[in-house]
Simulated scan of single mutants.
Amino acid sequence: MGGSISKREREVISSGKRRRRAATRGENEEREAMVLAWRKERKRLKEEVKRLRKKVKEKEQVEEWECVVVKQMILERALRDEAVERWKNLYLAIKNQLDDLIQTTYGEGLQWRPDEEGVKTIEELRQELEVKEETIGGLKERVALMEKQQYGNQREIDLLRQSSRIISSQGISKKEESSPSSRNLSMFRNTCVDRK
């Protein structure tokens, strides 16, 4: 029998191989299922870590904003307290001045009460003010009218100068016959030059 295997032994060997193959297939499938489950768990944990990091970041931002708001509130409170203190000091200074004024006016026996003479004086001053306002209004109107007349005079002088230049450029000379119109023109020139 040197090296031959019986049929029965072959069957036992092949059934053992089949069992091992089946066992390794089952183990492989089990390993693959474990790997797949591990990957899913890992992915889930990564997502949870991302979510938690995002929450932490948002919480940090909220805390930063809270710090900024608190600092701003403290600064505003300090400014408000400073303004209130200044107003208090101003109020006290005015109150003291008024108290001193009242004391000097009423405390020494000098009491000022508006009497008929004082009321008349106030009315007279009001009437005088109204008269002066009316006078100012009239003067303003006169100034406006004078400015308007000055503008008209300036314009007239400019027109006369232009006319003079035109006539002198046409070659009318003094040697030529002097007509009444040319005499008037020379008189007009002289008056325009004098007005300057």
Rank of each mutant, 00 (worst) to 15 (best):
M1I: 08
M1N: 12
G2V: 12
I5G: 01
R8G: 05
R8P: 00
I13L: 12
I13C: 02
S14G: 01
S14D: 04
S14K: 04
S14A: 02
K17T: 04
R18E: 11
R18G: 09
R19Y: 03
R20K: 13
R25V: 02
G26M: 09
N28G: 13
A33K: 09
M34S: 06
A37K: 15
W38E: 15
R39Q: 15
K40M: 07
R42D: 10
L45R: 14
V49F: 08
L52R: 06
K54A: 10
K59M: 11
E60S: 10
V62A: 14
W65V: 06
M73A: 15
I74H: 14
L75F: 10
A78S: 10
L79Q: 05
W87D: 14
Y91P: 01
Y91I: 05
L92F: 03
D100G: 14
D100C: 03
I102H: 14
T104G: 04
G107S: 04
E108T: 15
E108D: 14
Q111D: 11
R113M: 14
E116R: 03
E116A: 07
E117G: 03
L125Y: 07
R126K: 09
L129W: 08
L129P: 00
V131P: 00
V131Q: 05
K132Y: 04
E134R: 15
I136Q: 12
L139T: 07
E141N: 06
L145A: 13
Y151H: 10
R155L: 11
R155K: 09
E156Y: 02
Q162W: 08
Q162H: 05
I166A: 04
S168A: 09
S169R: 13
Q170E: 03
Q170W: 08
G171H: 01
G171F: 02
S173M: 10
K174M: 05
K175M: 01
P180T: 04
N184I: 11
L185S: 07
M187L: 07
M187R: 13
N190W: 05
K196L: 10
